[in-house]
Structure formats: C-alpha cells, structure tokens
C-alpha cells in the first residue's frame, strides 16, 4: 500500500539527515505504529507521506503511484491527519470542524450531515449536544476524540496520527486507545501511528516499526518485536521486561488450542476462569499468586477444560 524506498530527508542547514535511506512497507488495512525516541525521525517520516515535507531523495508510493505525481491538496484530502495539538478551529463548532474535509471534497450537504452525525456517535458523543458546542467547551479527551473523528471524516483510506493521545491523562488515554481499536475494527483503515510509548505501541499496533537515527530498524508484529528483537538496539529499547509485555498480548485460548492436556487433578484451589480476554499474563499471575507450577483452566460454568503449567507458558512464548 504505502512503500518508502531509500527515502532521505535532510533539513536545510543540517549535516545529519533526519531520515537516512529509510525503507518501509506499510500494509493496507493495518495499524502500523512508528515507535522510537524523540528525534529518531518518526514524525518526519509521517509528514513525508502527506507531503507536509518533501523528501530530499528516494521515492514514496501509495498504491503504486509516486506521491509527487499527486496534487498536493487532493493527496492530503485523501489522507486523514491527526496531530497531538489537535488543531480544532476555535471559531467552528464540533460539527463544523468535522465537516472540514468533506466540504473541501465537495460532498453534498445531506451526505456531510449524515457522515458528521455518524462520526460524533462513533466517538461516543451526542450530535445534538456536543455536536453544537465549540471546542473550548470540551474536555481534553473529548477534543482529542473530535480530532480523530475529523481525521476520519473524509473517508480517507489512509490515516496519519502523530502522537494523537500524547497530551491526555492516562485514564482518558486508555479509553481513547480502546475506542480507536473499535473504530479500526469497523473501518479497517491503513493507519500510521506515531508514538514513543511502548505500551501504547504494543496495545494498538498490528505492526510496529522501530525507528532509530532516521532508519527503520525492525518492522514486525508486536510479539515478534518483543520475542525476536532483530538486534541489541531493539532489545534494549523494548526493555528488560519485554517478555512480560509479550505475555500480555498472547491470548490464553490460543495456547489452550495449541496444547490441550487432560486434567490430572481437579483441585479447585488452583483454577482460573477462561474468557476471551484472558492472556498468558493473567495465567502467569495466577500461578505466582497460588504458588503452584500448574493451574486448572475452567469455563464460565466452572467446568475444568485443561491445565496450564509454567513450562507450557514459556515454551509457547518461544514458539512464536
């Protein structure tokens, strides 16, 4: 979908390029997180894709077409853009803010009204109440939601998000992340999401691209980044507890499907209930809590299904 090939960006007056011969493939319909320390070139890369910046050399293609062959403004109208500062226009209401791109694309009025209503509902606000408000009457989290809705309004196949949740408090942030995942499940956009927060990257990313010194060091699924870091930089960057982070994203039911065992002992004192969201992390926590090396997994009717041991968990981790 989006290909960056040997892309270099040298800012005028600087000696070291911000982006240095970078290669990256962003897959269609997936959320790719650009993860790295500040100054590693992740935001610059994002801004090269919608031509807020032009590359010094190299090519960027979208669906096989070089972005330099697009008209700059119409290219941007087809790429949603959400930034940390949000940039809601204070002189326009929430509705009017969301309608900006559809208006630029000259949709007809009814279609715009409908799309704006749908989006306001989708971000959990009321079109007749918050929709009529001015941005200064919203909370930080609500503004950020409106920013996301505005980025999606023109129905762009691609959405670029530059640390969109960086400025909100942790609770609102978790909610925003959950909502983004929900929206993404429904809309299947190609999203490039810049962050420096490892937890956020693991939670949101279908793929994570690790940036360092203007290059992509590794671009892989979160579990692979965590369990099979390509080099010492990635290993160190993901931190010494990266294995525990990996446990958080592996579903317990995947392990059970893979490794079904007979119940050896129906000791009810060491069982945990299986639900769709249980992860290996919660299984491990239970093992430690009960101080056992094996636990029984039960379904929601308290019927034992299988057993999981500490060994099963660590084997499954390295199998990935």
């Amino acid at each position: 979908m989006i290909f960056l090939e040997s892309v270099t960006k040298l800012y005028p007056g600087e000696k070291i390029p911000a982006i240095d011969n970078l290669n990256l493939h962003v897959e269609a319909g997936k959320l790719t997180v650009f993860l790295g320390k500040s100054g590693c070139g992740k935001s610059t890369t994002l801004r090269l894709i919608n031509r807020m910046l032009d590359s010094t050399s190299g090519t960027i293609t979208i669906n096989g077409k070089n972005i330099k062959d697009f008209d700059e403004d119409s290219l941007r109208r087809d790429i949603g853009y959400v930034i940390q500062d949000i940039g809601l226009l204070p002189n326009k209401t929430v509705e009017e803010n969301i309608a900006i791109v559809p208006k630029l694309k000259k949709w007809d009025k009814e279609m715009i009204t409908q799309r704006v209503r749908d989006l306001i509902l989708m971000i959990g606000l009321d079109p007749d109440i918050e929709g009529k408000k001015y941005p200064r009457h919203l909370s930080g989290g609500q503004m950020q939601r409106v920013g996301v809705a505005r980025g999606l309004a023109g129905n762009p196949p691609i959405v670029l998000m530059d640390e969109p949740f960086g400025a909100v408090d942790p609770i609102a942030r978790t909610k925003l992340q959950d909502d983004l995942l929900k929206i993404q499940n429904a809309e299947k956009k190609t999203i490039c999401f810049v962050t420096h927060d490892i937890d956020e990257a693991i939670k949101l990313g279908d793929k994570i691209a690790i940036f360092n010194e203007g290059k992509v060091v590794q671009c892989d699924e979160p579990i692979k980044i965590l369990m099979r870091p390509k080099n010492d930089f990635v290993k160190e960057f993901m931190g010494e507890t990266r294995v525990l982070d990996a446990l958080k994203i592996i579903k317990l039911k995947d392990l059970i499907e893979d490794n079904h065992k007979k119940i050896t002992d129906e000791n009810l004192d060491r069982k945990i209930e299986l639900n769709d969201n249980s992860t290996l992390y919660s299984a491990l926590a239970n093992l430690i809590e009960k101080n056992k090396s094996i636990i029984t997994i039960v379904d929601n009717e308290n019927k034992p299904i299988t057993e999981v041991s500490f060994d099963d968990i660590s084997k499954y981790l390295y199998k990935e």
Partner: peptide, 15 residues
C-alpha cells in the same frame, strides 16, 4: 494564529 491550527488544516488539504 496558532501554528498548530495552520498545520492541522494544511494537513487536511486546505489550500
């Protein structure tokens, strides 16, 4: 005018 506003609307395709 706040630079981030200009950045945001430019990024949305305003000329």
């Amino acid at each position: 005018v706040d630079k981030s506003l200009i950045e945001a609307v430019k990024g949305m395709g305003m000329n």
